[in-house]
Design a protein around this nucleic acid. Structure first.
Length: 310
DNA sequence: AGGGTAACCTGTATGC
DNA sequence: TGCATACAGGTTACCC
């Protein structure tokens, strides 16, 4: 369950049902579910066995559980279809069960990683203490803080947007600029901010950036309060329950339905091998940044977006 | 250097 | 019914 609110729902479940428990065994049923571990699945299992999970952490869409083996942690990414479930030991195996973790207190259930598309997985890493960044797994050092992180640096984010020569939705999905935002919440926040997804980031003023970030936080907090967004049984919490934020979506998945602000039919456009949903009236496409040079002798070429100061 | 695209997978929905 | 195609909430390697 991919974006920040859904991952946070899972983190809370792990914190409650997995943290503090001692691991007795790990069964890897699909080799690809263990990521970036050259020593292989058997070694992965051996390094977990006998250790205890610490508190559940999250940055953006990544989750991790430190082990009582100091400086070592288990990192999880759900990809497009991954689930972390706490199941009674006797429950029938799910069709796409990839990894099973059993504990010294079996009455508390076992932890299962289930993943239809195998874009997600678990991996084992060193947890580094980065002076300015807190403790986080070494391989996600490039992942930016997420908008719900109290230490998210809004000023630096805005500076980065101004410097980039890209469009606003691309930037929102760039996990090295801001993490946790995916296709759904990007479309929702852009709709709320009345910004077209192809708006150049360099054209955003500081107040616009502040406003956009406010909408991202609002929609994510609202989704979190509703248990996340679920379209089907693929996206569930650790107890297998769906969130119900889908009914509150204003943009995502609403092609041809009336904009909840102005009534204009919403549109869907193919975008980066997926879709963007927007209101053509509330979120008009940006004007081209540069005018085509006029023929010599004509009135003058006007450059609409000359950058201020040299 | 940084932006943009294709690939990694399995399943479901839709149209012919 | 069968078959082909499009699409799905993410990330990465690799083009240019």
């Amino acid at each position: 369950m991919p974006e920040l609110p859904e991952v946070e729902v899972v983190r809370r479940g792990l914190e409650r049902w997995a943290s503090g428990r001692a691991i007795t065994d790990v069964e890897v049923r699909h080799p690809r579910a263990v990521r970036r571990h050259t020593a292989g699945a058997a070694d992965f299992a051996a390094r977990l066995r006998g250790h205890r999970f610490g508190p559940a952490r999250r940055r953006g869409k990544y989750l991790w559980l430190p082990l009582d083996d100091p400086g070592v942690c288990v990192l999880a990414h759900l990809g497009m279809s991954g689930q972390l479930l706490i199941q009674p030991a006797g429950a029938p195996d799910e069709r796409h069960l990839r990894i099973r973790v059993t504990f010294a207190d079996p009455a508390g259930g076992e932890l299962r990683f289930v993943d239809q598309r195998t874009f997600g997985g678990l991996s084992l890493h060193r947890e580094l203490v980065v002076p300015d960044s807190g403790a986080l797994p070494d391989v996600i050092a490039h992942i930016a803080r997420d908008p719900l992180d109290p230490l998210f640096d809004e000023r630096a984010f805005h500076t980065a947007l101004r410097r980039r020569r890209t469009t606003v939705k691309r930037a929102l999905l760039d996990q090295s600029l801001i993490s946790g935002v995916g296709n759904i919440y990007a479309d929702e926040a852009l709709w709320r901010a009345r910004l077209h997804y192809e708006r150049p980031t360099a054209s955003l003023t500081r107040p616009r950036t502040t406003e956009l970030l406010g909408h991202i936080r609002d929609v994510m907090n609202a989704a979190l309060a509703a248990g996340g967004t679920s379209f089907d049984s693929l996206y569930v919490n650790v107890n297998g329950e769906s969130g119900y934020f889908e009914r509150s979506l204003d943009a995502y998945g609403r092609e041809d339905e009336p904009c909840r602000r102005c009534g204009t039919p919403m549109r869907r456009r193919p975008w980066m091998n997926r879709s963007s949903y927007y209101c053509p009236r509330c979120q008009p496409p940006p004007r081209p940044r540069r005018t085509v040079p006029v023929a010599p002798g004509k009135a003058g070429t006007r450059n609409v977006s000359r950058r201020p100061g040299k």
